[in-house]
Structures are given as structure tokens and as C-alpha cells.
Amino acid sequence: MLAGYVLTKLNTTEWRRAKVFSNIWQGGAQTVSTSFWGLVYDVLPETGLFENVDMAKYVKQLHHAGLLARNEQGLVQLTAKGVAAQGQYQVEHYVPRNLAINQTYDLKLFRDVFLLANQTISELAYSNAQFYPYQIDLRAQWQLKHWLKMHPREILINQWYQELTTWLKSIPDTDAELFTQMLFGHEVANALFSELAVPVTWTEFDWQLWQLDQLAALMTTSLQTDSLIKSLMTVTARPLLSNSAQQSVELWQQTHSLSQVAQRRQIKANTVREHILQAAMLQQWSASEIQELIPNAEQTTLAQCYEVSDISTWDFKAYAGGKDPRYFTYFRLYQLLQLAKQREAMNVKL
């Protein structure tokens, strides 16, 4: 069903890189280029959510069905038939809304940790230590064990129950029913997909996505209070940047000199530039912060080169083909600047 979901990520005006989606969905280390296009396509919140995605197969299927077109570079966009299929998909299937938190907390891991925590607390409420535990990543399991030991039994049971009750009362009753259907514990099994009261057009993929999206909403809400669930989330926290990129950015923020950072860290200046670019993209730096990184003269040249608002069509060669790699960084930063301005304008509007 992921093939249909791919349609929701495309449009008729932009040629998009299918590989960017699969790289992000599969998780793992991202190149600067993947992060950039991920930001442009607004798919970074879905990092690591669909590990087994076979994008080449989906593109082939959708292309064969006449739903998307491919250009000579292998980029894809929707056809008119694809637009209709996209609309139909959005009506018949679940489209997530709350996934932003997945960039700072590993949402799939949180689902596993949350379900096992819930099961263990439920068994604890019946003083039963002999049960088949839900199997999750071993390291997370150990961290969960440590987390459980940090809290007295009564607090765990009562506060967990209260927090879930408060959350479920805040969402529509039908969602609350579905949410509790995914929970299991002492002599209570979770529901099979076939017995859920969901639209008939849903597939198991929709159900998986719905669960992740609801948990993302619960996480986002829990962050605002001093809750048990918030403290459980720390087990699944993930840094936006790699250790190395983080070090470069911190040093650079102290010295404001790329060459000094490169020298001290004994890495190439271009690697430092990439680290800063990653930070600007993943930490979503503001327009004014990005503007500071581009020399005024370059900003003027860039403004003269590119007037169209659609940054995905900009050709680097029009600005500085063959020059020093630093100019590519300015080019990317200038693109990021436009994105940041759009984002800020949208926020003001909202």
C-alpha cells in the first residue's frame, strides 16, 4: 500500500527524486543532498518509518499504471491520472498529521517501548511476573527496565492509567476506542486488524500509520507536561546531527571560522561546510541565521541569478559552475534561505 502513499508525496509541477524518499524512509545516515531534498519535499519527519520500502518497484508500478511520469534524469511527477488517484487515496486511506516529533524522538522505537511499558505495568497491576513480554530491541528493553525501576509500583500503575485516561478523553471517542485496541497486557490481547472498526478501504498499512500518528500526537502533548510518558520518551530521543557534525557546529559557533574548525578537528573545510549545512537544514535555522552565513556580495549575485520562487528548478551552473566548492555551499544556503523565508511567512500567516 506504500505505492499509493507515494502518490501523496508528489505533484504535477515539480520533478522529484524518488530515491530521496526511499533513503529517508529507510533511515540511516543521510547525505547533505538527501537532507536538503527531504526538507524541500517535507518528508524529513518520516525518517526511518518504512525500512523495507522498495521504491524502484513502486515507481515501476505507478508508472506502469500511468499515474506518474519519469523524465530522462529519472525524476518523477504526477500525471493527470495520478492526481485523481492521489485524491482518491487521500479519501480512502489514512494520511498522518503529527509526525514532526519523529525527527527528535524515534517514533517506531517509541511505539515498541510504549507497548512493552504498557504491558509490563498492566502485569504489575496484577502482580504477575511470568508473562510473555512483547519483544523489542534489546538495548531499549534494558533502558525500559531501568526506567521502570526508577518509579515506585503504585506511581507507575496509577499515574500511567491517569495519563492515558486524560489523553484519551482529549481525543474523539472513536479514536480513543481504536487507541485502546492496540494496547495489551494482563489477559488482554491487542486487536487483530480484521476486527477493528476502521473504514473498509483501510489496509494494515493504514492501521500501522494511524498507530504511529496517534502515538506521535501523544508524545507531542506529553512533552508539554511533566509526565511519565515524557520521561519514557527520553529512551527514544535521537540527535538531529551526528556527533561529528555537532562538534563542528559547536566549534564554528564559538570561532565563526571554517578553516579554524577544520584545522582543530583535522577534517576538510568542505566537511565542516557540510556539517553546518546539515545543522541549518535539520535544526531549521531561521532566515536571519542563514543569511549571516552568506557574504553580502554572493547574496547579490545569487539574487540576480535566480528570480523564480521554485528553488527545485535552480541550476547551480547559472551561478558558479566549476568554481571552488564553497560556492555550492552558498548556493545551497541561499536555497535554504528561501525555504526559511517561506516557512516564516507561513507561520506569521497562521
Binding site: 504498557n118 505495568i121 498492566s122 497491576a125 500503575i157 500511567w160 492509567y161 492515558l164 485516561t165 484519551l168 471517542d173 480513543a176 476506542e177 487507541f179 485502546t180 485496541q181 494496547l183 497486557g185 494482563h186 489477559e187 488482554v188
Partner: peptide, 9 residues
């Protein structure tokens, strides 16, 4: 859902 939660905990 309320009864299910009560039963779980």
C-alpha cells in the same frame, strides 16, 4: 475504552 483501560490496570 474506559472499561478496557480499567481491566488493563
Amino acid at each position: 475504552w474506559q472499561k478496557r483501560l480499567e481491566k488493563l490496570f
